[in-house]
Amino acid sequence: MQETTLTVNGKTHTVDVDPATPLLYVLRNDLGLRGPRFGCGLAQCGTCTVLMDGRPIRSCILPVSRTRGEITTLEGLPEDGKLHPVQQAWIEEQVPQCGFCQNGQILTAAALLSNSPNPSDEEIRRGMNPILCRCMTYYRIQSAVKRAATAMAGTSGEEDR
């Protein structure tokens, strides 16, 4: 056991765990978060995704001691009490079926759009490809990413679209 300090959704936490513990278990079992979930523990599915300084990472394989910077989970994505445009688009497109994978889908989409505000269909497919969905909501996810891109372009005040 060893004390590790990490910043999650804007708050600093100190936990006393084996430093090799995957971040996923600390987020879920010590910090009580529900967004990231266990799917494979092998970095293959994306269900456990969180953002580390805005980049999607797989918390199931990252030792908590190697966590750097700011962690954002699905719970931390809304700003000023308002859902992130990606979350909003997910509701408008009624994307989820069981919803179990959607944590990874939403966070990955948010990161994709912050890097590439107006992605082509091909970029969306490529960017989202690592996140699996066994309910096969891919079709709606891809529509929702486009909807979110449009919404974000609208709110960021770009006139030259």
Binding site: L33, R34, G35, R37, F38, T73, L74, E75, L77, P78, L83, Q87, W90, I91, Q94, V95, P96, G99, F100, Q102, N103, I106
Partner: peptide, 17 residues
């Protein structure tokens, strides 16, 4: 709209896991 979707999207939904 499905009533379970908002909580599945904002992370507040409580699953069996």
């Amino acid at each position: 709209p499905r009533y379970d979707i908002p909580a599945k999207v904002d992370g507040s939904f409580e699953w069996a896991v």
